[in-house]
Each structure stands twice: as structure tokens, then as C-alpha cells.
Design a protein around this nucleic acid. Structure first.
Lengths: 180, 180
DNA sequence: GTCTATAGGGCGATAGAC
DNA sequence: GTCTATCGCCCTATAGAC
């Protein structure tokens, strides 16, 4: 074997994720990924057709990780905590799911996450298909995670905004139950 | 005057904003801005020290525009509508305020916007300094705007999630009033 | 304040040898 | 599947003439 395999699709994605996490999106390039792996940039094109294909792989990986975290949580409070914990621990990965629009993250695994939220919201409102409720919850969670990641809360933190908003939202969703 | 002024700080920012709005952030460069203005890229360095300084100028301009829109709105419902209308009509500009972290958008004009929200929330909760309430409202509005801009709601729109979330949030904030 | 010219770098992607 | 070499393009920023 004169030229044995030095890397794999998964290793390439690992390296790319590490670069994005440590140095930001601007630092991601075929060359920087290849350098971290100890191979030449041209070799990567045997694993991914082009840079866009590699980024789609990143999107799928990110959605997978969030899904694994959410899977074990029960109840809206727990879901919210896990969701925000993930966004805090891997902000670049989280941004990939909710902001960057890759091909992968608007279908597939994202659907599993969506259905998970549907189930939890349904348990509270009694409506098993409360799309509006999920949209409202997701908007709040994502907005909070996004503002926090951007440092908009300053040094003093959210000042209780998370608890207040979540409580209000849950109360509002529950209230609808009695009306229906 | 052998070399009369061909452009100004404001014209440069206008050109930059148009590029970002029409072609996205990736298309923004000193060269692309200069080309749109009919000058050489090197000339821009007489108006802004470097690219980062130009981007800070963009951040300040964006915050100014949002502030002008919010100034005329009265009541939380109206504020929410205006906020989202701005995010929809100028998504790249909006992203600059809430996501990109430039020097300008975390101080100065943003403070005016913050105080505006404080006043409106205070009118509902009775607490003139309800920071938590503002954080909760802002998180929801920003999250909704952000998900919408990313196309996460698909072709069928938000399915009533905006109204539901806003109603729940306002109801939740009002409820606190009676407890206090 | 603008210009030309250039330094000094990065990038995605491909061809062809092994 | 990896390598070397290269094409062709992009970029920020500076120096110095006018």
C-alpha cells in the first residue's frame, strides 16, 4: 500500500468542528482542516465533493449531538435546561443548527428534535399537535441562547429573564388548556 | 483641486449596507465597496482606519435605524410588530444588531432601545425597572425574528406561534403584577 | 483625498504521478 | 487515497506620486 488511508470522513468533521469551536468560522478552510489532520488539502476532496458538502456534514453532526442531549430530558423545564446547556457548551455548533442554513439541518434529525418538543408541549396543553406552542417555546429558547452567546446580557447575566420568560410561557400555554 | 473628494463616510456605509443586503456578508470587502462607489479600495482607508472600523460604523448605523422605527411605537404589541417588521425588511441589518458583536452595538444607541423596552414592560408589570421582563421579551422577539430569517418555519409560516408566544408572555408578565 | 503599484497573504479546486 | 504542483482568483493594507 503505497498511499494508505490517513483519515476518514468522521475525522475530517472532527477536525473541522474543533477549528470552528476554537478559532471561529472565519478560520475554517480546506487547508486549515487538512493541516490539523496532517494531510494535504487536495486529499479532502476524495471525502467531500467540495467545501459546501463538508459544511453540510457539520450541520448534520451538530443536529445529531443536540438530539442526543435532548433525548434523555423529560419535561419542559428539563428540555429547556438541556437545550441551553448545549448552546452554552458548544456555541459554534449550536449556531450551525439554528442560524446557518445548511441543507442538512432543516430536515432529517431536526425533525426528531421538533417532534420531541411537540410531545412535551402537548403534555402541557393537551393538544398533541400544538405547532404554535412549539414555535413560541423554540423562539424563546433560541432567542435567549442567541443573545447570551452574543454577550448581550453583559457581566450581570440575564437577571432572571430566563426563569421569568419560561414561567410566563408555560403558564400561558397551560392557560389555553382550560379554554379549549 | 487636483484630487477632490469623491465620497464620504456616510456614502461608504451606504454602499457597504447595500452590498450586505443584496449579496450577503461574504460579498463585503474593501474592494467591493470601493467598486460600488467608483473609487479605489485604498481611498477608503482615508475614511476608516481598517475594515473593522468600517464594520463598527455599520453596527452603529443599524442600531440607529432600528431605534428610529421603535421610537414611534406605543404599547408592547406595537413594539413587537415594529421590531419584527424591521427584522423582516432588513434582515442583514438586523443580524448586525443582535448577532454580530461589533463594538458599537452593545452600547450607545442600543441603550436607548433597551430603555424603551423597559418603559413598555414597566407599564404592564408596574415595575419601572423590570430587567427580567425585558430580557424575556427581547429573547422571544429576537428568537422569533432569527428563526424566521433562517427559514426555519418553512412555507407554512409560524402557524400562530408569534401571537401565542406574545400573548402568553404578556399574560405572564401581567400576572406577576398582582403577586407583587 | 485620490491615485497607481505592490507587498504578502489566503482561498477553492483540479491534474496527474504514485 | 495521498501526494506535488499549479491555476486563477480573492483579500487587507501600505508607500509614495499628484
Amino acid at each position: 500500500m503505497p498511499y494508505p488511508a490517513k483519515t476518514t470522513r468522521n475525522e475530517i468533521l472532527d477536525a473541522a468542528l474543533e477549528i470552528v469551536a476554537k478559532e471561529g468560522w472565519a478560520a475554517l478552510s480546506m487547508r486549515s482542516v487538512a493541516k490539523k489532520l496532517g494531510v494535504q488539502a487536495s486529499s479532502l476532496y476524495h471525502h467531500f465533493a467540495d467545501r459546501a458538502a463538508m459544511e453540510n456534514g457539520l450541520g448534520r453532526r451538530a443536529a445529531d449531538e443536540l438530539w442526543e442531549h435532548l433525548e434523555g430530558a423529560n419535561g419542559l423545564q428539563a428540555i429547556a435546561e438541556v437545550y441551553l446547556a448545549f448552546a452554552r457548551s458548544k456555541p459554534e455548533l449550536y449556531a450551525l443548527i439554528a442560524s446557518r442554513s445548511t441543507e442538512a439541518n432543516s430536515t432529517g434529525v431536526s425533525k426528531a428534535i421538533w417532534n420531541r418538543l411537540l410531545k412535551e408541549v402537548g403534555a402541557i396543553t393537551g393538544d398533541p399537535d400544538d405547532t404554535a406552542g412549539v414555535v413560541a417555546l423554540w423562539a424563546f429558547l433560541h432567542g435567549f441562547a442567541s443573545l447570551e452567546a452574543a454577550g448581550k446580557f453583559g457581566g450581570s447575566g440575564d437577571r432572571g429573564g430566563l426563569r421569568k420568560g419560561l414561567d410566563a410561557l408555560i403558564a400561558g400555554l397551560q392557560a389555553k388548556r382550560h379554554i379549549l
